[in-house]
Simulated assay, not measured.
Amino acid sequence: MSEIQARKGLIWIIGGIGALLIAAMVIVKIWFAATVFMPIDEAAIAAASEPLDPEEQIVRDMVTPVALGTPVMPTVTPALDPADYSRDLARFIPIEVGMDRYLAKDELLLHYNSEPLSENPEARAKVSSNEQMIDGATLFVIRRSGMADDSVAAEETFALFDGAVLVDFGSRIQCRRGDTPNQWTTTLCP
């Protein structure tokens, strides 16, 4: 019987050690949760969901670093009229209706940032972008200004996405010369 009692004692010891390990793991888990994870701050969540002030939005959405003279991207509103843009003028950008949202945005970013590097960083064109949800769709607008071109001063393209699909797009430009210099137009500059 002493051998059976020894086995029972060993089982009780192993069981006791197991229970202590489980209790220790529970205590560590509670301590970890209490010290690492902070309670949910409802005010911080509400503040994060509020729109940013326009300057913060511009800084967050800049494609190029913020520098003196960087153009301010206008706030995109539902009043953006596709008639003010031309899909034919955007023919130089390899995007088309039905294209995947991320691929289309990549193509736009590549097109707008494709200017050759200049030895003088101030001489580089400035690129800015803005993206907003409007009536369940995503409107992305990208602009390049301060271009070294003697004809074109700035160009802008909008892309409208329904979910992950491009449903509409168009471009417009500002000419340095002509009948209406520095006004947005959908015709090629003289």
Rank of each mutant, 00 (worst) to 15 (best):
D81V: 06
G9N: 15
M1D: 04
V97N: 04
I93P: 06
R91I: 13
V127Q: 00
D150K: 03
W12I: 13
T157D: 00
N182T: 05
E3K: 11
A83H: 02
G69C: 03
R172V: 08
V59C: 04
K29N: 11
V97M: 04
K8V: 15
I45P: 10
E156R: 02
C175W: 02
A67V: 10
M1A: 09
G170S: 08
G98R: 07
Q132D: 01
T75K: 09
E115P: 07
P116D: 07
F169N: 15
R7E: 15
I27S: 08
E107M: 15
G178V: 13
F169E: 11
L139M: 08
L20A: 15
T138D: 03
G163T: 00
R143H: 01
F158W: 00
L68I: 11
W31A: 12
E96H: 12
A43Y: 07
K8F: 14
T187D: 12
I40W: 02
V152H: 10
S86N: 14
V141G: 02
T185F: 09
R87D: 15
D100C: 02
A48I: 07
N130I: 01
I4L: 10
P94M: 03
R91A: 14
D106C: 02
P116S: 13
A125D: 01
A24C: 04
D100R: 04
L139K: 05
V72E: 05
T138I: 01
P78M: 09
M133C: 01
I40V: 14
P51H: 11
A19G: 14
T77A: 08
F140Y: 15
E55A: 11
P78G: 15
G178K: 13
D106L: 12
I30S: 06
I14M: 11
R101H: 11
P51K: 15
I30F: 10
P94G: 03
E119L: 12
L89N: 09
S86K: 14
T75Q: 13
I142G: 03
V59G: 02
V63P: 00
F169W: 12
A137M: 02
V141F: 02
Q5D: 09
Q174C: 10
E107F: 13
D53K: 14
R177M: 10
W12K: 15
I14G: 08
T180N: 15
T64G: 01
Q5L: 13
I14Q: 10
D81F: 04
F158L: 01
L68N: 11
I45G: 12
R143L: 08
K29I: 03
E155L: 03
L160V: 00
F169M: 15
P82I: 06
D53F: 14
